[in-house]
Design a binder for these strands. Structure first.
Lengths: 118, 118
DNA sequence: CTCGATGCTTCCCGTTGGAGAGTAGGCACC
DNA sequence: GGTGCCTACTCTCCAACGGGAAGCATCGAG
């Protein structure tokens, strides 16, 4: 069986959904700078809800992209870090970020043009 | 003002959401092979609803990534194609697809491990 | 003995997305 | 002339998803 993201039942579609997820991209980018705590991630990624941060981290952990380390202290401390697999995604998501920032003005210009015509 | 996708109000966040969208990625990949009609896209991208296909195409058109050409014939014919801007995304989304397919087995293994521990 | 810190979890509700039926408009066949 | 048929949507209904806020568990500090 060949991997084919265009087939909705292929596992690669699910993988693509995960790595293309809006929050996953930002979490991975944030962890690029080294281990981060839950609160640090929440602070850096503006607009993410606690529920979605937890959910995204669980998904990334399940897929082997990040590790979750609990320190038995009070108050609790949980560190998240990229795995080797997660680090192999870094170039790609950094590329997405770079594209978004460098082509921002072109996209906004296109948008203005489109909206002007209606 | 510097573009920062981590800020929820920055335009680059919206651009990142668009190019990281599950359906946008698949539409762009499909259009990589040349112009496609609405029905061809719907057929190729397994599992997409008509509503989301229309919505995704409109979004991509608005952002200047694809063009929409209506041929005044009966039955109607509408062709979609990538713009230069859209083509500049190709390497990136092809990279995502490649990552998904090549690391599929690793991700599935990680998932099985995670689920086994629970 | 209450407060605060931290990392969640739960509840409520508005928004989003999927499924499927309906629409427009002219040609083609009976 | 009526009945389909074709394509690219558009509309309607409903389930699922995501945001916001509040609750929970733990233990030391004050």
């Amino acid at each position: 069986m060949q991997a084919d993201p265009f087939n909705r039942n292929c596992g690669s579609r699910k993988v693509l959904d995960r790595i293309g997820d809006r929050w996953s991209v930002l979490v991975v980018l944030t962890l690029a700078g080294g281990d981060k705590r839950y609160g640090e991630l929440a602070e850096r990624i503006d607009g993410i809800s606690q529920k979605m941060l937890t959910q995204t981290l669980r998904g990334l952990e399940r897929d082997g992209l990040v590790t979750r380390t609990v320190h038995a202290s009070v108050p609790p401390r949980v560190d998240y870090a990229l795995t080797d697999l997660g680090r192999s995604l870094l170039d790609l998501v950094a590329g997405l970020e770079a594209w978004a920032t460098t082509h921002l003005t072109e996209v906004e210009a296109a948008r203005a043009r489109y909206d002007a015509r209606g």
